[in-house]
Computed example of a mutant assay.
Amino acid sequence: MAVAVAGVLVAAGAISYAVAEDSGSDTTTPTADSADAGFARDMSVHHQQAVEMSYIVRDRTKDEDVRRLAYDIAQTQANQRGMLLGWLDLWELPKVSADPPMSWMGMGDMPAGKDGALMPGMATNSDLKKLGTLSGKQAEIFYLQLMTDHHKGGIHMAEGCVDKCTVGVEKRLAQGMVNGQQSEIDLMAGMLKERGAKPRS
């Protein structure tokens, strides 16, 4: 365990160094209303819910494949969330904004999120409550469906950053999210099929 933690800390240090190095090559630090800051704020919120859902399902099933996927998603997205919030600190920008979610990518006029689903793809509070009441195969299916929708929303947002962000290391992280989450969507489609189910959308 100590080795794993040390590895994460080393990676975090390398990332901090890369950010500082990369930011130095940019002419200006992003502003509070930039795509870079908007993506960092919004994706950190989006990621936090994925982490929450993953820990819920991990306690609701004994299926090793689903538990492994949930653990991987939770770890990956918690680490990425740390990077995003770290960049906001580095840029001395607020972690919350009065602007509607996704305004930075021209979607600020979308309807206000319902029942806790602040952005496209996010689960509602009712969805999360339901997930916490299911167990076994039912929990697995609902989690895979919720996470597929979640990833689709996340990919759309990450593609917005690839297109609009200006900080190189953040654009690369966003592209990595697109690739990684699309791969997981494909994996989850197969896992749903094995369980006689399909994605919700």
Results as ranks from 00 to 15, higher is better:
residue 25 S to V: 09
residue 24 G to I: 01
residue 89 D to K: 11
residue 186 D to P: 05
residue 120 P to Y: 13
residue 4 A to E: 08
residue 20 A to W: 09
residue 87 W to E: 15
residue 182 Q to F: 01
residue 99 D to I: 00
residue 163 D to T: 14
residue 68 R to A: 15
residue 122 M to G: 04
residue 44 S to E: 01
residue 148 T to I: 13
residue 153 G to Y: 05
residue 135 S to H: 14
residue 86 G to M: 07
residue 136 G to E: 10
residue 61 T to A: 04
residue 165 C to S: 11
residue 43 M to P: 07
residue 24 G to V: 00
residue 110 M to W: 06
residue 59 D to T: 15
residue 56 I to F: 01
residue 126 S to D: 12
residue 153 G to S: 10
residue 69 L to H: 04
residue 18 A to F: 06
residue 98 A to T: 13
residue 163 D to A: 14
residue 158 A to V: 10
residue 69 L to I: 05
residue 107 M to L: 14
residue 169 V to Y: 11
residue 71 Y to S: 12
residue 168 G to C: 02
residue 21 E to W: 03
residue 166 T to G: 10
residue 197 A to V: 02
residue 95 K to V: 12
residue 34 S to W: 14
residue 58 R to Y: 07
residue 40 A to W: 00
residue 31 T to Y: 02
residue 184 E to L: 05
residue 146 L to S: 04
residue 175 Q to M: 15
residue 70 A to K: 03
residue 121 G to S: 06
residue 109 D to Y: 05
residue 140 E to K: 09
residue 116 G to Q: 11
residue 20 A to Y: 07
residue 170 E to P: 00
residue 179 N to R: 12
residue 15 I to L: 06
residue 137 K to R: 15
residue 101 P to Y: 08
residue 155 I to V: 15
residue 48 Q to T: 09
residue 199 P to S: 08
residue 90 L to Q: 13
residue 77 Q to N: 02
residue 133 T to F: 03
residue 52 E to I: 07
residue 30 P to F: 11
residue 3 V to S: 11
residue 94 P to H: 09
residue 26 D to V: 11
residue 58 R to I: 05
residue 176 G to I: 11
residue 55 Y to Q: 10
residue 179 N to F: 08
residue 45 V to K: 05
residue 19 V to L: 13
residue 187 L to I: 00
residue 84 L to W: 04
residue 109 D to I: 02
residue 151 H to V: 05
residue 91 W to H: 04
residue 173 L to N: 12
residue 24 G to M: 03
residue 48 Q to N: 12
residue 112 A to N: 04
residue 159 E to R: 15
residue 186 D to Y: 02
residue 199 P to K: 12
residue 123 A to D: 07
residue 31 T to M: 07
residue 38 G to A: 09
residue 80 Q to W: 04
residue 178 V to C: 08
residue 134 L to P: 06
residue 76 T to I: 02
residue 78 A to P: 00
